[in-house]
């Protein structure tokens, strides 16, 4: 019988073709993502705000909480963006305001993605009655706009940073669960899962070792999209004064508290509003680039 000639198999070490292995090489995915100008812009802005959130103390010209620089000064001079009605430096408060939202949003996202992944894995793999039940509850939760749900819950829980992060996580859980569930349901029908069941593997093993590694791509994309919305929700809750409380320089909160002075000194609200806007846009651009890179 003619033997198989392994040497004839073309260079196995070269990059695998598009297909199930497209995730194998994270670096190549990132390199595709980075090749787009909009992603570059997004990354620069995002990195700027992350650095700022960690090390704002090094950049601020004034203490963001210190009053007495003269009330509602116009931009220019020592106060590049003017001062607010308590005489605090607007630029310093804008720079200091990044840290709160960039703490709450990642924690909330993490909670939501972790819980959602677990729920999605279990409902997608086992289906059946529990799946139907859980998905019904998920539908009911999704029938309420997240902001209204959050307003309801925070008026119940009281406002604290922890409550906001937890809430974001809880709101995201069903959404992430849906995404993960549908990915799991496709994988579950793949024959490698049948093969695992055939060798008598437990459900937990199949979910964790066989299916989970194959649904990481949609989970990561979902996580980046959720991160954008987490900033959205955290900012909005602050704006509704349901999140952080004064005198925090948080952006959403500042827009809320300084709204009365918008006619006199628009910079007091425009500064934090634009800051939050750039952050959100940068996250969206990066996550969109990542999604495109994974699709290709």
């Amino acid at each position: 019988m003619s033997a198989i000639v392994p040497g004839a198999v073309p260079a196995v070490t070269t990059a695998a073709p598009a297909g199930p292995s497209r995730w194998a090489n994270l670096r190549s995915v990132l390199s595709v993502a980075v090749r787009s100008a909009s992603v570059d812009v997004g990354l620069v802005i995002l990195v700027f705000w992350i650095v700022d959130a960690v090390a704002w103390h090094l950049f601020v010209p004034f203490d963001p909480l210190a009053q007495g620089g003269g009330n509602l000064l116009a931009p220019g001079g020592a106060h590049l963006l003017g001062t607010d009605n308590l005489g605090r430096d607007v630029l310093s408060r804008v720079l200091a305001g990044a840290s709160s939202v960039l703490t709450l949003a990642p924690i909330g996202t993490l909670i939501g993605v972790a819980l959602g992944t677990v729920v999605g894995l279990i409902t997608g793999y086992y289906r059946g009655v529990a799946d139907t039940l859980i998905m019904r509850v998920v539908d009911a939760l999704l029938a309420l706009p997240p902001i209204i749900l959050a307003a309801l819950a925070l008026s119940m829980l009281g406002t604290s940073e922890f409550a906001v992060a937890l809430l974001i996580g809880v709101i995201f859980t069903p959404i992430v669960a849906r995404t993960v569930r549908s990915a799991v349901m496709t994988e579950r029908d793949a024959e490698y899962v049948a093969a695992a069941r055939l060798r008598g593997e437990s459900g937990a093993y199949i979910m964790a070792a066989e299916i989970l590694p194959n649904v990481t791509a949609p989970i990561i994309v979902e996580a980046t999209v959720r991160f954008g919305y987490a900033i959205f929700i955290a900012g909005t809750l602050s704006f509704l004064s349901l999140g952080l409380q004064p005198p925090s320089p948080d952006w959403g909160l500042t827009v809320y508290t300084e709204q009365n002075f918008v006619q006199v000194q628009p910079w007091t609200v425009l500064g934090p509003a634009i800051a939050l806007g750039t952050l959100v846009v940068s996250v969206s651009l990066v996550s969109d680039g990542l999604r495109k890179a994974m699709d290709s």
Binding site: Y229, V262, G277
Partner: peptide, 10 residues
């Protein structure tokens, strides 16, 4: 993902 209060304020 631009919060309404941000675009609204601007």
């Amino acid at each position: 993902a631009l919060p309404e209060f941000v675009s609204g304020t601007i």
